[in-house]
Design a protein around this nucleic acid. Structure first.
Length: 248
DNA sequence: ACCGTCAATATGTTGG
DNA sequence: CCAACATATTGACGGT
């Protein structure tokens, strides 16, 4: 089995749970066109457990906010249907009567609401309209609110993941820098050795060795049948687990 | 007062 | 074209 390039083959797969998406929306090269991969398939509707709404009964604050609905694009049939279940009618524009001040209050989801949303998000990071509708009903929220919550939640997840990836890359960069320095030193040592002892270099040249990292035979003119040597005496091979010798 | 969090809005992108 | 999404931003709110 080909071990490939040990040094590079470090498993720094940045596909940390990402899937392809639009190329225009990435900000970290290498993670181009990727998005978090916890996405759902076409599974059946996991919601609709009638018992769940009981759990949330406690949170029957009228959570429907607020200055929502300002976005004209969000007024859609599905939304209007959802309104039936909601506790608030959202006026197409928002009158400025006495209710107005209250309407400006920002909604805070209850613990139960957040918990259920989280639970659903663990199952699927996106919702189809049916699921959204059902969940909204369960939570006593408008479908739009559920949708927004999921949108924001995905954004947060992605941000977190990006930060994580960034940390990973930083650490990887550090180890590579270290490794580079070690290899440079090794080269220097070999050069010095060459000057000091031409005979030894001649020996190295004619005797094949095995790099412990990639297990490839290096040096020597005649690998077959010739005497093998696993690493030179003074450890000129560093980090036998992942690192290749400068001789490779 | 400042800061972090998060619901909500605005707008651009994409796929059917 | 439109629905669904991503992304950037705003503003309310709570904690310090």
């Amino acid at each position: 089995m080909d071990k490939g390039y040990g040094v590079c083959d470090t498993g720094l797969a940045l596909g940390l749970g990402y899937k392809r998406k639009s190329p225009s929306q990435s900000f970290i090269s290498g993670m181009n066109s990727l998005e978090p991969m916890l996405t759902l398939g076409l599974s059946g509707d996991p919601y609709g457990s009638p018992t769940m709404s009981k759990v949330l009964e406690e949170s029957t604050q009228s959570p429907v906010s607020s200055f929502s609905n300002a976005n004209p694009r969000s007024i859609k049939s599905e939304e209007i249907i959802g309104e039936e279940t909601g506790t608030e009618k959202v006026s197409p524009r928002g009158s400025d009567d006495d209710e107005e001040v209250c309407a400006k209050k920002k909604l805070r989801l209850t613990k139960d609401q957040s918990a259920l949303l989280e639970e659903r998000f663990k199952e699927h990071t996106t919702l189809n309209p049916k699921q959204k509708q059902a969940l909204a009903k369960q939570l006593n929220l408008r479908p739009r609110q559920v949708e927004v919550w999921f949108q924001n939640r995905r954004a947060r997840t992605k941000l977190k993941q990006t930060e994580l990836d960034c940390e990973l890359l930083k650490r990887r960069c550090e180890t590579l820098t270290d490794e580079n320095q070690r290899l440079q030193r090794e080269v220097q040592e070999l050069k010095a050795l060459k000057l000091k002892s031409p005979l030894f270099m001649q020996f190295l040249k004619t005797s094949p060795m095995i790099c412990p990292a990639c297990e490839r035979i290096t040096g020597g003119d005649a690998p077959k049948g010739g005497p093998l040597m696993v690493a030179p005496p003074k450890h000129l091979f560093f980090n036998p687990f992942t690192t290749h010798s400068a001789a490779c």
